[in-house]
Amino acid sequence: MTARETRTLILVVVAFALLACLPLLRHGYLLSLGVDIAMYTVLATSWALFSGPTHYISLATAAFYGIGAYVVAAGIGTLPYPALVALAGLAGAVAAALVGLATLRLSGVYFVIFTLGLAELVRQIVTWVQNNFTGSRGMYVLTSITERMIYWELLALAAAVFFIGWRVARSRLGFALRIIGNDETVAAHLGINSAACKLALFVISGAFAGMVGAIMAPRLSYIEPSIAFTSELSFQVVIMALLGGVHRLWGPLVGVIPFTILWEVIAARFPTQTVLLLGIAFLLIVYLIPNGVVGRIESALRAAQRRVSHA
């Protein structure tokens, strides 16, 4: 480990330790905002792990999240909670593997279209199964888990995402993904199995979304198809990640914090206008900040450096 990496590591550990103290402030609103930010951080960062290098836009987050929440709702009476979270991660991974096997061999468009309706598809199937076989639609998740515990669990999960992201970026897999993202034909000629690489990353992001759903289930407390599967979530995650920038591991975080706060404000004041906000955010990203805020800042810094060295 180089000196620079050690310094970064210490900074990250200190930052996480400070963030873990947030519940000690005993500020209800701040804590609930903290939970939201931590949740979107995990979702957006794990989304960017897959979509950043490959440029495949996944809209499946809401489906995996909902599956995770349902695993908890279905098993809360029979299995211990930590086992359920692990099981939810597994369920998310399996779902992602199935979707990936069907679509990742093909071009990106097929993948986007398939994931676009995935949350709605799973919702229809779950509703149908519940209507016809189990009788009741909603399920209660009543636990003694408090909001601060949810916050700590999400924080731990965020640490895990960052660790995995850092490991992947330094591995052969990460290198292969960067080549695939630059030119898939070149990657194929180098003997990289691009479908398998993409699948591996997609499965990781699916597992994380499933676990997030499981962790959030006690906060929802009442689970029914229209609550667990909100396709809006998938779009929020995409916007946050792209807004921050997907070429750096910490890029999505830069988008998550302002967008979560903005979303809260808009949803509270103009609840019907969140759709318009999503639309404007997408257009802004494409036309004004295609590389995210982080990309903007980096190119500005580079320009400033060049000016200094020329002077």
Partner: peptide, 11 residues
């Protein structure tokens, strides 16, 4: 971009 337009139209 067209996702953006789609949401903007809905809004």
């Amino acid at each position: 971009a067209t996702f953006g337009m789609s949401f903007a139209f809905v809004g």
